[in-house]
């Protein structure tokens, strides 16, 4: 295995980008830490086929799901309601409203769309990450994009 620091340098930014898109800037840093600590734990004995990027994205994907679940369990309390809506700057500098729509997609379509357009992964890699066939991955992306087109007007 190459030195872990090189693995972090090679894949850290892409994993962070993926996490910002799937859990938001606020939770992305924590998920990133969890992802790389898990990776480090398994690292020395890892049997890999050369696709380390795919492996670490799979871990990140799971951490993102954990984060979504724990966020649902603990709603954030607030004593006061801000009178002015606060616009959080989006690190992707795309359309924040569009990413909100992506968040609203069914989980599999959401993940597929992110892997395709944030990570720029091919359908074969997406299929591996989602444990489905390549055709199903293609369908999830297609359905997701179709839904986005319908709601984004």
């Amino acid at each position: 295995m190459p030195p872990f620091q090189r693995f972090v340098d090679d894949h850290g930014p892409a994993v962070h980008g993926f996490l910002v898109a799937s859990v938001g800037q606020h939770d992305a840093d924590d998920c990133w830490q969890e992802t790389f600590i898990s990776a480090l734990r398994a690292y020395p004995t890892l049997q890999h086929d050369g696709n380390l990027r795919g492996w670490v994205l799979t871990i990140a994907h799971r951490k993102a799901i954990d984060s979504h679940r724990s966020r649902q369990r603990r709603p954030v309390p607030s004593e006061t309601v801000p009178e002015i809506p606060v616009e959080v700057p989006d690190p992707l500098q795309g359309e924040p409203a569009l990413w909100k729509l992506v968040d609203g997609l069914p989980p599999k379509q959401q993940a597929a769309v992110q892997h395709r357009f944030v990570e720029d992964l091919g359908y074969g890699d997406i299929a591996k990450l989602l444990s489905c066939s390549e055709a199903a991955a293609r369908r999830s992306v297609h359905e997701g994009v179709k839904k986005l087109r319908e709601t984004w007007a």
Binding site: P13, H16, W32
Partner: peptide
């Protein structure tokens, strides 16, 4: 694409240790 800042890397090293 966002990049990983130095603070995040330092926290990773601390946690790993």
């Amino acid at each position: 694409m966002t990049s990983v800042n130095a603070d995040l890397l330092e926290r990773l090293a601390q946690r790993a240790e």
